[in-house]
């Protein structure tokens, strides 16, 4: 439970003159649910992008199971068991819900050109199994009846669930969720977080969640990290973090300013 599976050490990242992250170090423990909070612009998503390989850090290292994976491209990180969702949905709009999820299984699918052209019974059987798996995942996130619908025909809450199913189909060991409840009302948010918690247990994941909805995250997370202006200001149990004066100051401003 407590072995570190993923570690970021002294990560730095600037965009032009803006220092998005300055020497951020966070350790992720196997099997935990880690919540990341912080005001807008505090560098949460940038941290995710660096872990998932979508952006390269200016300094510092990311290590996965003790191996240095800094700057590896996203498709290699996916192969190493890291999956993520996006703050602004990124679904494949020209594809059905089922195909979106199947896309998540890209790395396990038969990919050789000749293999696909010949489509021997063994290949066809693998394809069928992949479809069944994808359908099972759609059922698990409550979209079982929408397999043939297009991403553009789903409601906002459903698209969030679809993105989750797609990420799960990469069979990750670590799942990064960037604001899973953004734009949802309390009831929807509660539903999706319960789903997330359930999935985390079922698939034995290490879960990292960025969330603006602090009470919801306190309910979900086992440990929390608070970022402000590109620095870790507090780390601990959810109760400790939300009562930390730095965190309160970051969210509400300090007394002197008020």
């Amino acid at each position: 439970m407590n072995t570190p599976i993923l570690a970021c050490e002294n990560i730095e990242k600037s965009f032009g003159g803006v220092r998005a992250l300055r020497t951020v170090s966070v350790t992720f423990r196997e099997g935990e649910i880690l919540g990341i909070i912080g005001p807008n612009g505090s560098g949460k998503t940038t941290l995710f992008n660096i872990i998932s390989g979508h952006e390269a850090p200016d300094g510092g290292t990311v290590s996965l199971n003790g191996h240095d994976v800094t700057g590896k491209p996203p498709h290699k990180m996916a192969a190493l068991g890291l999956a993520r969702t996006f703050q602004n949905l990124r679904l494949f709009e020209g594809m059905s819900a089922l195909e979106n999820v199947l896309g998540g299984g890209h790395l396990r699918a038969p990919r050789g050109l000749l293999e696909q052209m010949l489509r021997l019974p063994s290949t066809a059987a693998r394809d069928r199994a992949a479809r069944e798996e994808a359908q099972t995942l759609l059922n698990a996130v409550g979209l079982g009846e929408h397999a043939r619908n297009f991403a553009t025909d789903l409601s906002y809450g459903q698209t969030k669930r679809l993105e989750l199913a797609r990420a799960l189909n990469t069979q990750p060991r670590i799942l990064l969720l960037d604001e899973p409840t953004a734009g949802m009302n309390d009831r929807q948010a509660r539903e999706i977080l319960e789903l997330v918690k359930d999935i985390k247990e079922r698939f034995a994941l290490t879960l990292v969640v960025i969330e603006h909805n602090v009470p919801a995250l306190v309910w979900l997370a086992e440990r929390m990290v608070a970022l402000d202006a590109g620095e870790v200001v507090c780390e601990g149990t959810p109760e400790e973090v939300v009562q930390d004066p730095h965190v309160i100051a970051a969210y509400l401003g300090t007394g002197a300013e008020a």
């Binding site: 896309g103 890209h106 990420a167």
Partner: peptide
Amino acid sequence: VAARAVGV
């Protein structure tokens, strides 16, 4: 971006 994230 999403294609990369699923391993493409």
